[in-house]
């Protein structure tokens, strides 16, 4: 695989070592606003895993089969964002028709995901790192899982924190960012577990 890490390595690494949120800081907006309790955080996390896996596959195909042969790489931002928005819309419609249960669980989060920068970030990273198709999909799925793991962990911590007294100016985003910093420190402990 000409020096490329294998798909499994990339998958595991993107969950815990190169966590898209804790080391690449992507998807912070929804991470901060929807992490007050575990249930919605888990719903959003699942929706992100789902959409990220699909869009990383689709964007790889669009980039490799359409943009590269035509020499239009610089249009990738527009192409990717259109693919993501269309996928989210399509997924929403399909889910509403065939899996209403899942739709009610994830439905309200889907429109939010279209503007989640982690989704676009995954597509841009996979192009820059020149992953193969299988590796890209593994990277998309792993990053989604890593993001979900981080937001669920934070929501759990914030539920416990409701009873603690925090300085009024530090409440909300301030303390959340500092907790995230401590989480990121803990995740650094995983580095070196898998050779990346």
């Amino acid at each position: 695989m000409n020096g490329q890490p294998s798909a499994i390595t990339v998958f595991i690494a993107s969950i815990i070592i190169n966590n898209i949120l804790l080391t690449n800081f992507l998807g912070m907006c929804s991470y901060l606003s929807i992490s007050k309790s575990v249930r919605p955080a888990a719903g959003l996390g699942m929706a992100v895993v789902f959409v990220m896996t699909i869009t990383s596959a689709l964007n790889y195909l669009v980039y490799d089969l359409v943009l590269l042969p035509l020499g239009l790489e610089y249009l990738r931002f527009i192409a990717f964002i259109v693919v993501i928005a269309a996928t989210v819309q399509l997924v929403e419609m399909v889910m509403e028709k065939y899996t209403p249960g899942l739709y009610y669980l994830l439905g309200i989060f889907l429109p939010l995901i279209a503007v989640n920068c982690a989704i676009l970030g995954v597509s841009l990273f996979m192009v820059i790192r020149q992953y193969s198709f299988v590796t890209s999909v593994a990277y998309g799925a792993g990053s989604g899982l890593g993001w979900a793991l981080a937001i669920i962990a934070l929501a759990g911590l914030r539920e416990k924190m409701k009873r603690s007294r925090v300085h009024p100016a530090l409440e909300g985003p301030g303390i959340t960012l500092i907790i995230t910093g401590i989480m990121a420190l803990a995740f650094i402990g995983f580095s070196g577990m898998v050779p990346v």
Binding site: T23, L170, I178, G181, I182
Partner: peptide, 23 residues
């Protein structure tokens, strides 16, 4: 630590704290 990811979170958290306590 300041140039590693956790440093970014700490620094932004502290900045938010500082500016908000001025309000």
């Amino acid at each position: 630590i300041m140039v590693m990811p956790p440093g970014a979170f700490f620094m932004l958290g502290l900045t938010v704290w500082l500016f908000r306590s001025l309000l």
